[in-house]
Design a protein around this nucleic acid. Sequence first.
RNA 1: GCCGAAGUAGCUCAGGGGUAGAGCAACUGAUUCGUAAUCAGUAGGUCAGGGGUUCAAUUCCCCUCUUCGGCUCCA
Length: 558
Amino acid sequence: MADAVQQLFPEAKVTIGPPVEDGFYYDFDYPNAFSVSDLEKIEAKMREIIVQGAAFECREVTRDEALATFAKRNEPYKIELINGLPEGEKITMYRHGNWEDLCRGPHTVKTADIKAFKLLKVAGAYWRGDSKNKMLQRIYGTAFASQAELDAFLQQREEAEKRDHRKLGKELGLIAFHPYAPGAAFWLPKGAIFYHELSEFMRSLLLSEGGFVEVKAPLLFNQKLWETSGHWQHYADAMFRVVSEEQNFGLKPMNCPGHMLLYSMGLHSYRDLPIRYCEQTPLHRNEASGTLAGLTRVRQFCQDDGHIFVRPDQIEEEVAAALKLVAKIYGIFDLKYEVKLSTRNPEKFIGSIETWESAEKQLAAALERNHIEYRLEPNEAAFYGPKIDFDVTDAIGRKWQCATIQLDYNLPERFDLTYIGEDSKKHRPVVIHRAIFGSFERFIAMLIEHYAGAFPTWLAPIQVQLLPISDDVIDYSQDVKAKLMQSGIRVAVDGRNEKLGLKIREAQLQKVPYMAVIGKKEKEAGGLAIRSRVKGDLGVMNIGDFGKLVLAENEQKR
RNA sequence: GCCGAAGUAGCUCAGGGGUAGAGCAACUGAUUCGUAAUCAGUAGGUCAGGGGUUCAAUUCCCCUCUUCGGCUCCA
């Protein structure tokens, strides 16, 4: 591709072009952005090159040879790359026809081996991934061993786009956005039901089995709190600030500092630990405008947040319990995830290196003892401590952090938190930050895409849609609705003067789990003709039996 | 925030320097119907907002806002 680009746009400077998960990209320094029609020209040129069928030849060169080659071609980025290679590293060049590139390889044997490819999109990307550097033009593409495989890939992408939570969220009447509130969702009546079900599910679980107590801290805090926690120094720009009577306040971007204050306001015995606070209140982060995306990256959100204050000897057990809870909850939704252990960023941390290393070791140990596969992510920790993150992949293949478990020795220090030990002296607790869903907003986005909008009964905004066939059974339908509602089922009547086929079609498109057709026969028999979203016509059932069936699914989270 | 693309009726989209169109939805009427779309009629728009060029701008240019795809960031 780079060969084709330079043939068509001789001014374009080559930089790097690695393979990625679904294909490849190449970054060019070129004064203008490439347009869609440029991509077509580049593709055409690439086909010409492929048809020529030149072999890819690899040769090893010395550092000086490599430098001289790219100096002659006036390719400063390649020279910078070569100079950045460690001493003694093998330098290889790949040639096809008259064009040669610095590359680690390997390549296919010859250009003609490339059977099917497509350039997908252009985007800006910073040189060496640093926003202080120049912005380059990146071209993304993909390639397959056959046209059929490429077609299948493109087809699959189209299918995936249909599950996009932004599209389904609108179609199913769950969420809306308005330009007056960028990055903050409106939860429409149906979306609010979904949200509330999840929220209640988590609350009751944490309060019953989880050993948590629920608290509600203020949303707005004096700047002094954020200075104490360290957030002001690290994230002042990303906080929404409010001035009142010459005092600076900040809307809370997270719950931990509030919970630290709450803990610090009382006296705690070693016998009381662990103390587990949970809270679901709104958080605000002033995310950069260009990063906002549907429900996955928002400015206002709410976490199923929790902070556990423990003695050092209780860390392992509490982390293990959190790991088990994540596995249990994600199992209920059948959601797949990847686990990462993020360790200290030498350029962004508070506290001593010793405590960091100890914290990192304890998290790794907890993962290993629970036989959880994970990937190490150096430098990715929060500034106050290392963390275990759980990434979920969205419909179009992007990964989003959802659950998180973070170990923190630093905030207890900064807030001078203590508990009274057996020796009646003051000791420092450790804090475990943890969220299972992460943010409700993002988790719901993942669920919408995971289920493609066809939610299990317990989450479906409307669980049963009653479909009266004619006006003379509407009264009976209302009676049925009242009965089902009384038993706690979310039920609606489609009383419009429309044909049954249309009502069924619309209920299906809205992905309502159960439809109940009501005509004269049902009215006389006192029953319902049940139709399942998935299985179709289930025949006539009596109201009580059907109600039990739905309630059982509610109970079993199905 | 940076690079790029986009914004036309509630929704999905067409159009294009001479004052805007379809389908669905809505409304009205007819139809009372048995497992994925009944028929007819009516109404609906500062063409995202602001400025400029022009006799004339929704169309061309500039700015702003929002959204989308990436990049950076993500407590």
